[in-house]
Amino acid sequence: MSTMKPILSLRGVTKHFTQHLRGGLRLDVLAGVDLDVFPGDCVVLDGPSGVGKSSLLKAIYGTYRVDGGSIMVAGTDVATAEPRAILALRRAVIGHVSQFLRVVPRVSALDIVAAPARGRGLDRAAAEARAADLLRRLQLPEKLWSLPPATFSGGEQQRVNIARGFVVDWPLMLLDEPTASLDGANAAIVAGLIDEARAKGTAMVAICHDPAMRARIATRLLPMTRVEQAA
């Protein structure tokens, strides 16, 4: 394990917000986070609400800019990379499963799930076949597959979201409360997907509040504490 290189390496990651609409109010969220994540790991970020877990995930994904430190993913420092380099990482290296599905009008559940596979070059038939397998496994009724998820329940939407995340293999996956809106049975299926991905070498960083789920999937915890606000 010590001879393997980490797929993700954080050193001294620091971030604050400046809220100009509130007279320049400064909000520090991350202070000097260090972390190494290896293939097969599932690191769960541990700490109370508001401690910066979501912010850390977003910083790794490149959504949040950081003020200091480095975020090395497969040889690229996300903290300083050009937008197109980050886009390339998002296409092939970093998968992201958010807490809620971002709904796009008119696109069917099947097409949403198949999209990352198409982005990797699979033809429509192959991508849709894979998408169908996942949706079936997550027990989304087949009659819903051709519908846009806007009218689905929260749990149904989240299952589409998760299917989309797992339709292709990723070296690194970021999971933000993936099972929060799912019942026990479906959560267990997701845990199974996580296991299989890890077995293929995927490294994961996750946020998960439910103790049972956390126990099920975490190989390690990263404790996080509230950052002291700069004066």
């Binding site: 100009h20 609409l21 977003k58 490149g62 959504t63 949040y64 800019r65 937008p83």
Partner: peptide
């Protein structure tokens, strides 16, 4: 920046507005 960067983590005052 990236779309989600600019919309989720706007830096400039006008962007935040």
């Amino acid at each position: 920046g990236l779309t989600d960067q600019v919309l989720d983590d706007p830096q400039a005052p006008y962007t935040q507005l």
